[in-house]
Every structure is written in C-alpha cells, then in structure tokens.
Simulated scan of single mutants.
Amino acid sequence: MSVVIGEISYTNIRPFFFYLDRPMLKEHNCQFVPQVPAQLNNEMAKGRVDIGGISSFAYAEHALEYTLLPNLSVTSYGAVNSIFLFSKVPINELNGKKVALTWSSASSVNLLKIILEHFYSMTISYTTMNPNVGSMLEDHDACLLIGDDAIVAKREYGSSLHHYDLGELWFNQTGLPMTFAVFAVRNETLRHHPSLVGLIYRSFLQSKLESESKNYQPMIAEIVKSHGGEKSFWDHYFQKLCNDFGPEEQKGLFYYYQLLYKMKYLTNPVEKLQIWDGAISK
C-alpha cells in the first residue's frame, strides 16, 4: 500500500518540498499529489491523500480524524502578501455588497467572513467563483484571491483597486498570527504506517530547515524563472512568512477555530489541537 503525500501547488509551501529527497520517498512507496488547497482538502477527506499540507480550516472539519504534525505550517504575523481582498470601494463601505470568493481555499474564505462579519459587523452576499479578478468583479463589489493568483493580481490591479491583506487585517484585530495551512496526517495512516509517517515528517522538517539556512535563495531563483516577479519581492515574501507551528501559532489558530464555531461556520467545536508527539522519535 502506498502513502499519498499532498502538495499544495502554491509557492508559499515550497520550502517544505524544495529539498525533499523524492526518489528516496518514492522508494518507500510514497506518491506525490500537487493540487490547490481545496482539492487536497477534498482528497484527504475521502482518504485518497494520507499526509501533507492542507488548509487549516480542513483540519477543523476533521479534527477527530487527523493529527497535526509539529513545527510545520504556513503562518503570518501580519501581512502574508499572497491573500488579498480586492475591492472597488473601501472595505468599510462593503456592508450589504456582493463579494466573490475563490473556490481554491477554505481557510482564507472563512477568515474573510470573520473579518467582514465579526470584526466589521457587516452583512455580505457571497458567490464562489474561479479565481480571476476581471470576471469576479463584473457583477461583484469585491473579490478574494489567494496564493499565486493573488500575487499576480496584486501586480496587475494593485494600483487600480483597493486591496487588503487578510493576514494584516487579522493581526491588527487580534495581535495573533494566522496559520493558513497546516501539515496533517490521517489517523488511519498514522496507525498503519507510523515509521513511514516519521520518515516523511523528518523529510519535510529537513527541507524547511535547509530552505531557511540558505535564506531561500536557490528556491527563489527558481521561482523567479517559473513565476516571474522581482527577486526583491520574493525575498521579502519568504522572510515575512513563518514556517513554524509552536505555541503562539497554535494559539492564533485555536482562536480562529473558536470564532468560526461561534459564527456557526464550524458544525463542531475544536476542543484541542491533536499534535503528534511521536514525530521525532518514530
């Protein structure tokens, strides 16, 4: 039986995958599935992905079925620089307006709902659409984009539209970091393949540490070639992201879950974050 590793197809998670020894992991019967967060969330819920990066909201929906891996996340303390609300009007004028949401992420969509409905006390009409600024704003007043789609849109529309960084809005309201993606493993996979899960985890951790030790430079050089943009942008982008998942990151994520349950966007409360305590020793 193979273990399927989910790989979010956005640059923000690349430090965890850039230095992976993929041939070695494939020799251990691992397969890689690169998809956008929403697709990976769905595949993991159906048991077709066993371990990897998923939307933090997806963990909340399956907290009794998944276990989180420590020390690994995509988190921001303030601006995340790849999750933006683009708007025709200032954000404080969006009450009663129509907002288009990208279909590709659950964490950011629900974070936007917290920001607009809880922090700004607004009533909003939402529509989920393909992530394209032009089509999203044809019949809507604002739109949410994430990941590489948001980065490209910021380059093209940053001077013509109001734009708001969701990580910055969250931090300004709470003083807490926001964790957008976590690394999780299905409990069934952890029971049947604990040693292999440990090998995969240590591979993620080593890739993260090597990326950081080299200041992301080899990875950034590749991203500039494949995605464009100025090197200075990507330098700033990765320096601002936090790849850890310690007590402070967990505190911010738990508060996010509490608000979602209070607002009825989560059916069941997340009583605790189930984090694997055998990650290093296995």
Rank of each mutant, 00 (worst) to 15 (best):
T123Q: 12
E210L: 07
V109E: 12
L190H: 06
L101H: 05
F84K: 13
L72Y: 02
D149P: 10
T128G: 10
S159A: 12
S232M: 12
L266K: 08
V33G: 11
L253V: 00
L111F: 02
E65H: 12
S105R: 04
N187R: 15
A79T: 06
E212W: 09
Y237E: 00
S207G: 05
V152M: 12
K272M: 06
G278N: 12
E212I: 15
K225A: 11
M44E: 05
I124A: 04
H140A: 08
F32A: 13
Y126A: 01
K97Q: 07
I200V: 13
R186E: 09
V74T: 04
Y126K: 01
A279S: 09
K231Q: 15
E138Q: 14
I275K: 03
M44D: 05
I151W: 11
I200G: 06
L196G: 08
L259D: 04
F254L: 02
I91L: 15
L145E: 06
F180D: 06
W103N: 15
T179I: 05
H227M: 14
E271V: 15
L111V: 04
Y77V: 01
Y164N: 12
L260Q: 04
G78S: 09
P34S: 08
K251I: 13
D148E: 10
I5A: 10
T127R: 15
W276T: 07
Q173G: 09
C143M: 03
V224L: 09
K113P: 08
I280M: 13
F18M: 07
D139A: 15
L68K: 00
L259N: 02
Y120V: 05
P23F: 06
I220N: 03
L273D: 02
G6P: 03
